[in-house]
Design a protein around this nucleic acid. Structure first.
Lengths: 208, 208
DNA sequence: CGGTTCATGTTAGAGGTCTTTACATGGGCT
DNA sequence: AGCCCATGTAAAGACCTCTAACATGAACCG
């Protein structure tokens, strides 16, 4: 069959770039039906190949999801690092920029976020996955250290703990309230406002 | 077949309490393989009945999962309410008791927690599900109101927002760090300590 | 007490999906 | 040109979902 896939890219018997097409298909399907809402064969269909073709590139569905999660963490780390460095010279302003970038990622790249945190993918499922996740977390931690460094030496909270708190709150808000899950709890404010307010309260509690 | 199920409870042709057995089977299976890791037929097998029997009690797998989530929220609400009322007369002490109960539930009843927050069950999937979830959240909110009421009238933050922040942090910590997911990020402290510290910082930020 | 009823089981099977095995294709190298 | 092998397909077998038709036995009723 020579007809092209749904993006009009396929050229002949061989797809040419099935690996990437499967990733895109997985992201599309996660967006439509959640991380558990599609099968390996569904991804093959969406990419325009037979249901056996994906096995040439991934051992099974979990391996595909693991690759998606890994790429998600890499993209996430980039976005967080960029938000931090573009957030201005003031650590606090940069910090808020980071928080917004976190939620923006959770919202705009909801499919990646889902694969990263809600698909039940083990950090050992894919080589490099844990490293990518660590890099994203390190970005948060560096930001926390930079804020902590502004405090007088006697009142510096542990930056690691601080970054864990912030990560937990950002993830909690993203996970509970920022998903478009049709039937989610309604909020009196946007998730971004909720997170910003939460971070401000938390930082004030630290004496910042 | 007169042999009994894996818990030695079955008596004869009729199971006697298949509905409950299916719930237990679902919880067992979620604990072993995650909320997406088993089928309706698996649950039937685990309960010791034919694969058609569950249809007498649940329309499909989602209905079973919805019932599990509903019971989970009911149990969760009970535990939170009890922790609050047993936490002592001091609102702050009661508040910490509530936080510990939250994490204890996420840890000890990980299968319920998974069905409630990670299985993608819509709050409309089952009659009474949303009500049960609301009751659990209301428990958090009442606790927040009680703490807020201790503050001078001019400095009272909105209790709803406060309860959302606390829920988000508790859920974030439970979801990211408190699961025994074999390959989770290691922490320099227990999740309970992390949450307690986070709540203290947050409450200090509010002026409590 | 005997018979009826009906909720709750069973088996059988249609229809579908997933996964694997054996075979087909053609791009790239010598 | 011709070979190799990465990357596709087709088809078989296993399993799941769901329905239909039948079986069992506990509870109820005359």
């Amino acid at each position: 069959m020579g007809w092209s896939d749904h993006r009009g890219e396929r050229r002949g018997y061989h797809h040419g770039n099935l690996r990437e097409a499967l990733i895109r298909a997985a992201l599309d399907l996660i967006g439509q039906k959640g991380p558990a809402g599609f099968t390996f064969a569904d991804a093959a269909r969406a990419a325009g190949v037979s249901s056996a073709a994906p096995y040439r590139h991934y051992r099974d569905r979990d391996a595909l999801l693991g690759d998606v999660a890994k790429r998600g963490f890499e993209l996430f780390a980039e976005r967080l690092e960029r938000a931090w460095s573009e957030g201005g010279p003031d650590p606090m302003a940069a910090f808020e920029s980071l928080g917004r970038a976190y939620l923006a990622f959770a919202r705009d790249e909801a499919s990646y976020y889902s694969a990263m945190f809600e698909a039940g993918v083990s950090l050992d499922a894919e080589p490099g996955l844990r490293e990518a996740a660590d890099r994203a977390f390190a970005s948060l931690r560096r930001a926390a250290e930079s804020v902590v460094a502004q405090l007088p030496a006697g009142r510096r909270p542990p930056a690691l703990m601080m970054s864990l708190h912030i990560w937990a709150m950002a993830h909690g808000i993203a996970s509970l309230f920022a998903r478009a899950d049709a039937g989610r709890r309604p909020l009196p404010m946007t998730p971004e406002e909720l997170l910003e307010a939460g971070l401000l309260v938390y930082l004030r509690g630290l004496g910042v």
